[in-house]
Design a protein around this nucleic acid. Structure first.
Lengths: 341, 341
DNA sequence: CCTTGCTTTGTTAGCGCTAACATAATGATA
DNA sequence: TATCATTATGTTAGCGCTAACAAAGCAAGG
């Protein structure tokens, strides 16, 4: 006789045998208990426990053309910003049967497209992608995907499907207004990586300065190198070498801002007296730093939570009220921008 | 007639038709091209490209009882330590067909066990789990898993299967020796979370002090709260309130160490003159800080890379030379422990 | 009592792929 | 040339689950 394959773990048929029902009844009892009468449900649950049965997710996915996988594509694993959002997604999905599959696009659009292709090949239950700057091909793929798609971290009037985040442009503008209001005049910008979101922050910031007649492109310094604390220290050094008269600087994220602070301390400059500093994201360390650092607080955890809520709603058949949710930001004013007059 | 299901994307049968071969030949051409003659291979490749065929990973997993999923279970998503290791895993696996499935146990052993169960239900190609402190049930599950299992971040003479990391006990001991060698006498410890690895660091540290007759339990302060920069500042404040004579402190990680530095700065204490500080992990910011912070450098990226290498070797049928790889650590001495005599 | 409509359970036939076995084609050897 | 070993391809039967349809059970209404 031909050998049987697999034969390791108990299958739904074993559970059905033990409970004295058909396999489809077991299937229903596990996926939608309301569809099965109480006594059968109990017998089935008992059999499941006794056999230590774990449904074979691949078989389920194949039979139903729908997996329990939520694909998540982020551009970085080491960036705390995404870590918080990811943590929220994991926390939220933990309750249900959905599993996260995480992809790292490393800020490369082509890589993101490749990941979208792979994920779609697995018929995911839903997809979460960071940002709104997909390649046209990637966007087309996502638009024709027959599952909910949530773009996170940004807002845009024209989402692929659903979207939750905030306006980076407005965040940058708020940073600019804050420094102007504090009386700073020669105001600069330091930006690393300069992905599309950082660029929009910079544009909003420049816009604020421009509308006050304070925009000076010489005080803007950017690089495509990835952001880090030491890079922040390095760039403020370079910027001050070129323009020692700079009074305040907006950093495209908090790591850079912390680096600027360290750079000032190493150079013997006082913050905020000699240089005002404002960061972006308001990571936990910003409040602890000495002096504490002003930043634009963003609700990264809330973004992840909302994304999952939107997916859940859609999977339950409800249409979310708004396809685009703006979670906003708050300016957290701290010592690093308190200018003595 | 009964409706057909699925019917969306092209299947392997479509490719086989187009190339004029059988499905199994297509299957072989895709998985192991050497098994198929060159002309057929080319016809098949052309058909794959023309149809934009993506293999259905669930069907493959079901048929072969083996998925292309590498399950990774870490206790935290926001801890930079794991982020670096994860990044290495993603970087390495990107080349091949293997996909990462990431689980977050949040430092809860029962949650880790649950995740192991779920992952095993998917017949993963391999599993990577953080640390060596699984519950007995979890350990039993992993021992009977018919796939490679790598425990990362630690070393232990008795691995479940394979292991790569370093000795936290020795790391702690090195920190202790360093402070002693620098002439510090009243030496303390600050630890948050106090997961098993932090505890082993503390034990190694205490061992070093004890062997020099310098161990003073009053100078050790721990909490189960999760570590953060502000918590570091808070704890050093509490410790100094109790024992103003403390001269140096080892922190169970770098976030705490940075917080201790900030706490000292807020309190007007000089580092290292009034207090020496040494951290653990040597995150990027440690070198940039002012003063720069001494730390124990660990090779987190290397751990992830090595874990994948070990898995690859095993899947290729080779037995790795060593089932336990110790990647060690280096003491990075910086300004925060330079004591003037 | 039968009909109607609902709920609960079962039967059957795949989902798309690959393991195992079968066979044909090729080359090497006696 | 016949025989055997090897390689290249094909046939068949599932992997474990669920969609679609079928049927049985039950209550309410006429």
């Amino acid at each position: 006789m031909r050998k049987r394959r697999g034969a390791g773990r108990p299958t739904i048929a074993d559970v059905a045998d033990k409970a004295g029902v058909s396999t489809i009844t077991v299937s229903r009892a596990l996926r939608d208990p309301a569809k099965v009468s109480a006594p059968l449900r109990e017998r089935i649950d008992a059999a499941v426990r006794k056999l230590d049965y774990v449904p074979h997710s691949h078989a389920s996915a194949l039979a139903s053309s729908r997996s329990n996988i939520v694909g998540v594509i982020v551009p970085s694993l080491t960036n705390n910003v995404f870590a918080d959002t990811l943590r929220a997604i994991y926390d939220e999905l933990e309750q249900g049967p959905l599993q996260v599959q995480l992809g790292n696009s490393r800020y490369v659009a082509a890589e993101e497209e490749r990941l979208i292709r792979i994920f779609l090949g697995q018929r995911p239950a839903a997809l979460i992608v960071a940002g709104g700057d997909q390649t046209p091909a990637a966007r087309a793929l996502l638009e024709s995907a027959d599952c909910p798609v949530v773009q996170v971290m940004e807002v845009d009037p024209d989402p692929i499907d659903m979207m939750v985040g905030f306006s980076h442009f407005e965040g940058g503008r708020a940073a600019g207004h804050h420094l102007l209001q504090r009386g700073y005049r020669r105001i600069g910008f330091i930006g690393a990586r300069m992905d599309p979101r950082s660029r929009r922050r910079m544009e909003g910031f420049a816009e604020a300065l421009r509308s006050a007649g304070r925009y000076d492109s010489e005080l803007f310094m950017t690089t495509t190198r990835s952001s880090s604390t030491s890079l922040g220290a390095e760039l403020i050094g370079a910027l001050r070498a070129k323009r020692p008269d700079i009074e305040a600087v907006f950093c495209n994220n908090d790591d850079m801002a912390l680096g600027v602070l360290f750079g000032c301390q190493h150079a013997g400059l006082r913050v905020p007296e000699d240089l005002g500093i404002i960061g972006f994201n308001d990571l936990e360390m910003m409040a602890a730093a000495c002096p504490s650092l002003t930043s634009i607080r963003t609700n990264r955890y809330g973004i992840g939570k909302t994304a999952v809520d939107m997916i859940r709603a859609r999977l339950d058949g409800d249409e979310p009220e708004n396809r685009v949710v703006d979670l906003g930001f708050q300016l957290q004013e701290r010592q690093s921008t308190v200018r003595r007059v």
